[in-house]
Design a binder for these strands. Structure first.
Lengths: 233, 233
DNA sequence: ACCTGAACACCGTTCAAGT
DNA sequence: ACCTGAACACCGTTCAAGT
């Protein structure tokens, strides 16, 4: 653990920074937190470190690797739950995972493309498998595939809910406005061509986001526990 | 002077192309098919249309909208299954959806960020709701949320399986090589810190991709059917 | 009214050259 | 040996100006 002497104004550092892998990651997270993933570019990070972009390539292979490193670092914020019934622990752990990714807008995109594989992710993964095997009493096959599926769903959900930064700030369309747009599109869809969608648009758009996430999690767990793996030949 | 017969491949169009929204979309799909989503940029599309990039903005608001339009266009390839038991139809439809997105590498990323909402997607959505309500006999709430969840999982799965084009061609790391890397990472993870993962690495990595997808689909359907919605207050 | 050349403000990555 | 200035090859988007 590093003794965190917070640089409170970030300008009170006259000497040039160490320029290590960790320092690069920290600066990247800082930019992301303040201005979004979109601004956390190689060039921007290099500028913040008062050097040229080429220097970063001594420590980081490319942008994808930088984002992956940032993701695992940030996953460290997850609080592991304890002493709860196994279902509750699974739900809390996966929700915590999702929330971290949502918090760092846009990181979800990286997570879906370049699978996170750092130590923190592995710890969460391990705990989920444990809960499934010892708590739910399902087979290692179901438990491991289930844990994987749960993290995939959490990441995808986070990607949907993250504000999409297209321009300097928003798309000019907030997540809420976009929901309204979807609402309108669903309603406008000709009843003749999509009768079920038209008839049940209310049902589709009902419920608070938390209720919906709760249901999603429960459906995942129920499905994972109830579905045996195909027989391998 | 010899009358130079133009190379017939795509140069046999002496008049300038119409330059409509549809034409832009078609050219974009063509580039994507040949060189990947990464190459299907505004500038590149404009160049292919022998005009400046500014001209595209008369018909398309921005890059995100272009990709969304392309996605819905491409979704037209989906074959709707018929006259099968409802579970089978759900599985085939969702698999077809996923396969289309996988086929256009990288499109999955757009799909997760900017929710596809074209007529084709709505048609698939409608059919899924129908199958759930009339086939499975579940509530409209479960049916609509379930259909939404299924498409989310399919999109996320496609995003994972799509080759990530980081450079001109590959990342220098194919999907297979990456799986090997993950395998190695899982194995290398200290048994002391992640004992369950270490003990069940084989189970995690077992099974052919199709078997795994099959299991994922069945787990989704089982969970959706078995999980009632929370009571709305 | 419709279209677009040219400019603005950026990117990632490489490599020859410096210390 | 380690680092980086400068270059290469691109981006998305805007807007004043042309037809």
């Amino acid at each position: 653990m590093v003794e965190s002497s917070e640089p409170r104004s970030r300008r009170d550092r006259p000497a040039k920074p160490p320029l290590s892998r960790q320092w690069i990651i920290d600066v990247t997270i800082d930019i992301m937190r303040r201005e979004g993933l979109k601004k956390a570019t190689m060039r921007r990070v290099a500028a913040e470190l008062e050097t040229g972009p080429a220097s970063l390539y001594v420590y980081i292979r490319n942008t994808a690797e930088l984002h992956a490193a940032v993701l695992d670092e940030v996953l460290g914020e997850i609080q592991m739950p304890h002493d709860r019934p196994w279902q509750e622990e699974v739900e809390q752990l996966v929700t915590a995972y999702r929330d971290v990714i949502v918090r760092y807008h846009g990181l979800a995109r990286s997570a879906l493309v370049q699978r996170p594989s750092g130590p923190t992710l592995f710890a969460v993964f391990d705990r989920l498998i444990e809960l499934f095997i010892d708590g739910a009493g399902i087979s290692p096959g179901q438990a491991t595939w289930g844990a994987d599926l749960l993290l995939l769903v959490a990441t995808a959900n986070a990607a949907e809910h993250a504000p999409h930064e297209t321009g300097d700030t928003d798309t000019g369309m907030s997540a809420d406005e976009e929901l309204d747009a979807l609402f309108a599109a669903v309603r406008a869809s000709t009843s003749a061509k999509t009768p079920y969608l038209a008839a049940h648009a209310d049902a589709l758009l009902a419920g608070a986001p938390e209720q919906r996430w709760e249901w999603t999690l429960r459906a995942q767990i129920a499905g994972i526990v109830a579905t045996p793996q195909p027989v391998t030949q």
